[in-house]
Computed example of a mutant assay.
Amino acid sequence: MTDLISIILPVYNCDQWLTNTIKSVQKQTYSNFELICVDDGSTDHSLEIIKRIMASDHRIKLICEENLGACYARNNGVSYARGSYIAFLDGDDLYAPDFLQANYDAIKKYKADVSMVNIIQNDGTNEFLWRDIKVMGNNTEVFNEYAEGNICNRVWNKLYRSELVKKVPFPEDQQYVEDAQWTPRIMEEVNRMVRIPKGYYHYIIHQGSLTHRNSRDSKWKKRLTEYVGNVLEGNTVILKYTTSKDGRQKSYGIP
């Protein structure tokens, strides 16, 4: 028997892409999953799309909430998750067909708490130049790799043992780049991790996305301040554990 995997999908006004996002989950070669869609008060057709698709697929679940942000939606989804493992997905991105299988096989083979895959960019190339499978056998090795820039903050290119995620809630007062502080905190709970060089997660950047907005936009400036705060908080955790002198100097300028 294979383990149940819970996939948490926060949804907010992404009806342009949502059908393809959900289909990428339905096409997974690893079929023992539940997809928990958390509608975060969408005002477009996102909710209709979810209801239509879930009518013919019992693996898709729906939670509706008022608009409280992605962190609250993720925490809400995690609270309903029944799987032994948890993965995340954004409403405009795509899983490669073997995203779940590749992560699950790696976790089982290397007895890891977390598996991480490379990220496929818009042009089809991998974001990171990882060459080989890397197994980090203890907490110190995990944070040394982190300090040297070999672990990314993104929450959604990983598969986690569910008990780890349930220990570390997302910061609900944060709305932008919250993963910069959440991922280091989850890594505090990790004893063994595996990194896969091949890309299995399609990160889609759209025109007009938040990261491309005018820097003079007042909301952008507020979120940029939030971003800096989250990065600093995350870096504090990393520096607490890393013993890598090269990593400390390279990433943070600390001897």
Rank of each mutant, 00 (worst) to 15 (best):
T21P: 15
K167C: 10
I107N: 00
Y30P: 13
T2P: 01
I53V: 06
N67F: 07
K240L: 09
S31C: 09
W17R: 06
R185Y: 03
K219V: 14
V114D: 04
L210D: 11
E178H: 08
V38D: 02
G69T: 00
Y104A: 06
S42W: 12
P171M: 13
T140W: 04
K111G: 07
Y252G: 14
K134W: 04
Q26P: 03
L100A: 12
N67C: 08
M54C: 06
D217A: 04
S162C: 07
A96V: 06
S79I: 07
V25P: 08
T2E: 07
D217T: 07
R82F: 09
F128I: 01
G253Y: 07
H45W: 02
T242D: 11
M116S: 09
I133P: 02
H206V: 03
N103P: 15
Y227I: 00
K250W: 15
Q181Y: 13
P184A: 02
T19M: 08
S209T: 05
L18M: 09
W182R: 02
I36R: 00
N157A: 00
H58A: 11
N13P: 01
D132C: 07
I107D: 02
R192E: 04
G229R: 15
L89S: 13
I86R: 12
P10F: 00
A70L: 08
G69N: 11
N214M: 07
R52H: 06
D217V: 12
S218W: 09
V11E: 02
K27M: 09
V168D: 10
A106C: 15
D113Y: 10
V155Q: 07
Y80P: 10
L159S: 10
P184R: 10
Y203R: 12
V237K: 04
W130R: 05
Q181E: 15
K134P: 03
G229W: 02
I151L: 11
G137I: 02
W182G: 10
L68G: 12
K250F: 15
E65Q: 15
L239D: 05
E189G: 03
T140Q: 11
I63A: 02
T21Q: 11
G247W: 01
D15R: 06
Y200R: 11
C14H: 11
K222G: 06
Q101S: 14
S84H: 09
L68V: 09
W182K: 00
E148A: 00
V142W: 05
N139V: 02
Y12L: 05
A73S: 15
L9F: 08
A102Q: 15
E163N: 15
D44K: 03
K23D: 14
P169A: 14
R82Y: 03
R161G: 12
I22H: 06
I238C: 11
M187Y: 06
W220A: 07
A81E: 13
D39S: 03
T43W: 01
N157K: 07
G247T: 08
E163V: 00
S218Q: 09
T183I: 04
H202C: 08
L224E: 12
A147D: 03
I107Y: 05
E178D: 13
V190H: 01
R216Y: 09
N75C: 11
T2Q: 04
K134D: 00
L129C: 07
L164R: 10
Q249P: 03
V228W: 11
R192N: 05
Y80C: 15
S79F: 12
G41H: 14
T19V: 02
H45S: 08
C37M: 02
